[in-house]
Design a protein around this nucleic acid. Structure first.
Lengths: 214, 214
DNA sequence: GGTGTGAATATGTCTATACATATTGAGCAA
DNA sequence: TTGCTCAATATGTATAGACATATTCACACC
């Protein structure tokens, strides 16, 4: 069948990428497109809606549909569990709980993640026990805190930051590199409705690369 | 009105986050939900579709709709023009074209990006002139190559990599830091249908942070 | 037990229709 | 000119109905 909304989407996308419809330009209305493609307006609507969701089009009632001026592309990256990240490389994942300490309502954990037995990343994590009381009694030696939280702490939102830092003494010791070695550091906070659940600093092993698809 | 698809979406999302419907669990069928919410099945469909797009649900014909096991959250990051990135910080953007060289079909450019007059990032870029012949005659002293390409080279796909490297001699000279200083380095390639358009290495100034929203 | 087959079923998608809503722009009034 | 009102219009959304398609499950058969 040639009248699916996916067909319409593909053709419209082709015209955008082909600059048949230039950036910022108004494209024909839904009714006109429906007529052209020989389908119902709802089908065109579905297609344009999807393209708008992906940032290719900007739509406003009455004003019509325009090709987005700066196809503000977004890079996407999955927030993966470290175990899966390692296994995706074809390596065997392992981890060691280096320390565990409770101060007030804060549980502090230090974990070393390994790939094929060698250091992959050093994680320093704080978990708020008021929001995640179950974490106090969890056994993080078999299931890493990273994975435990993904499974047990659904979150609303969060943020991540990447930066470059020289290896601290602790980083150097556990990641087996000289102090000051440039390392890719990830800071991440995740929040639930109630407040911050956890905060983590992850020092990647030297040479680590983060890849994103556009 | 309480029968909008957004209302249904919100309520379903609430139940997922509230664990009324546990991860991996089957949720009621569209017909049942439509009956419950007092709306048409198409409305429920629209809502569930949207949630599936966002990774909260997994839907399969006949098999029904399940709450995603690991709400595989994606971090998003806009692929911004550097000028806008700087201006978003409330600073004045500037850039200097340091070198320009053509070898065969390859145009090589080195550009220093500045924020409020101080170094922000050092860019080494190669542009394939067979795919972007117009680049040969473009004036990159007024409009940076970064921005020129965003406006003139629509691309299909690409990839980005972040890593941590010690400042090279060139990095150190232009970014005004000691050699070996840990820097956040971005590599990016973008492709059109025809092939690779451009490849870039961007060395960020020391202390640079890349933020992503989850 | 294993295997194939067909009925049942949940979601996928399209259609036609209707009304809602935001925005534009023309026309009129101050 | 400025400002207001109102009609026209493009998209947003809801609905009922229909058929498509994938998958499961029960059941017959070997």
């Amino acid at each position: 069948m040639s009248t699916g909304w996916q067909t319409v989407q593909a053709e419209v996308l082709r015209r955008i990428q082909n600059r048949d419809w230039p950036p910022g330009g108004l494209i024909p209305g839904e009714v006109a497109l429906a007529r052209e493609f020989g389908c119902a307006r709802a089908t065109v609507n579905r297609a344009l809606q999807a393209l708008a969701d992906d940032g290719w089009l900007e739509r406003r009632r009455r004003a019509g549909t325009r090709v987005a001026l700066s196809p503000l592309r977004r890079a996407q990256m999955s927030v993966a569990v470290l175990r899966k990240e390692v296994e995706a490389l074809g390596k065997t994942y392992g981890h060691r709980l280096l320390s565990r300490k409770v101060t007030g309502d804060l549980l502090s954990l230090q974990t070393l993640h390994q790939a094929d037995g060698t250091a992959y990343g050093l994680e320093d994590r704080e978990i708020d026990l008021t929001h995640m009381p179950a974490a106090a009694s969890a056994d993080f030696t078999t299931l890493s805190a990273n994975e435990w939280l993904v499974q047990n702490a659904p979150f609303d939102h969060g943020n991540m930051s990447y930066m470059s830092e020289g290896a601290t003494a602790s980083d150097a010791r556990h990641l087996d590199c000289p102090e000051g070695t440039p390392l890719l550091i990830l800071y991440r906070e995740t929040f639930s409705e109630a407040g911050r659940i956890t905060r983590v600093r992850l020092a990647h092993a030297p040479g680590h690369v983060v890849r994103l698809q556009i």
